[in-house]
């Protein structure tokens, strides 16, 4: 046997995994259409249909912008991870990787890069389409900062949650059947499609458990004039609480991932 050469460095393997994950996503027509383009289609359709003012000279589309970006983040992270990883678990990709000397962390780094790329692409397209088609007012000054931390924290929470949820369904198809309706209902009660203050109170309470409501709320502070904070059920944007709840979900999601992640299919023992 020849002298042992050294194992490839972590950054190198991380780069390779990031490349793999980006290709896997952007080459798959279904994922590009449903995850990346679906929020854009929603924006185009809702912006055209729900053409009214929500008060203070602000259009519903301006309000919807915050919600649809939150929904886009949810799709790029929670839905994308839950369905993608469940599929890779049931088709043997994960088991195969676990049998190689790839450091396990590299798999998750690759996924995080994928989520970030898809999230940034989704947000960029939404902003451009919103501006060009509906004359959305883009954020300015420190609003960008709020935008960045809400998106980052929300996407971290939802990515971890998606990885944890991926262990529940039997395979990719049942993951899609499970996660898609859940996400849709969550969008309805979290103030994505309708004004959150007009949703029945008990639904608001349910929505407040999950991250989507808080992402949408945080993003409303970015896209709406401060005067409209009075319309919120709490009477303010509650940015501190937004940060707290999302951070709590990051911790919960991380614990769930560590406890539940499996490299092999349940049917496989």
């Amino acid at each position: 046997m020849s002298a042992p050469s050294s194992l490839p460095s972590l950054p190198r393997v991380f780069r390779v995994r990031a490349g793999v994950e980006l290709k896997e996503f952007f080459r798959q027509r279904e994922s590009v259409v449903f995850t990346l383009m679906f929020p854009v289609i929603l924006l185009v359709v809702f912006g055209a249909v729900l053409d009214y003012e929500i008060g203070g000279g602000v259009s519903f589309t301006q309000y919807f912008m915050a919600g649809v970006i939150a929904a886009g983040i949810l799709g790029a992270s929670l839905q994308n991870m839950a369905i993608g990883i469940a599929t890779e678990r049931s088709d043997g990709t994960l088991k195969h990787l676990a049998g190689t000397p790839m450091p396990k962390a590299a798999y998750f780094i690759g996924k995080v890069v994928q989520v970030l790329a898809v999230t940034v692409a989704t947000i960029a397209i939404l902003l451009v389409v919103g501006k060009v088609l509906y004359g959305i007012d883009l954020p300015s000054g420190t609003q960008w900062l709020t935008f960045a931390w809400v998106a980052l924290l929300g996407s971290a929470a939802c990515t971890l949650l998606g990885i944890a949820v991926s262990s529940l369904p039997k395979n990719g198809r049942s993951a899609s059947a499970m996660v898609t309706p859940f996400a849709l209902v969550l969008q309805f009660i979290s103030g994505v499609f309708f004004r959150f203050d007009q949703i029945p109170e008990w639904m608001q309470t349910v929505a407040a458990v999950f991250p989507l409501k808080w992402m949408a709320q945080g993003l409303r502070s970015v896209f709406l004039p401060d005067a409209l904070a009075a319309q919120e059920p709490a009477g303010s944007w509650e940015l501190g609480r937004v940060a707290l709840v999302l951070a709590a979900w990051v911790v919960v999601g991380l614990l769930l991932c560590v406890r539940t992640f499996r490299w092999r299919d349940r049917a496989d023992g």
Binding site: R27, T87, D268
Partner: peptide
């Protein structure tokens, strides 16, 4: 593996 290396777009 019996199950192969999984599906891929690569």
């Amino acid at each position: 593996l019996q199950s192969g290396a999984g599906d891929s777009q690569l």
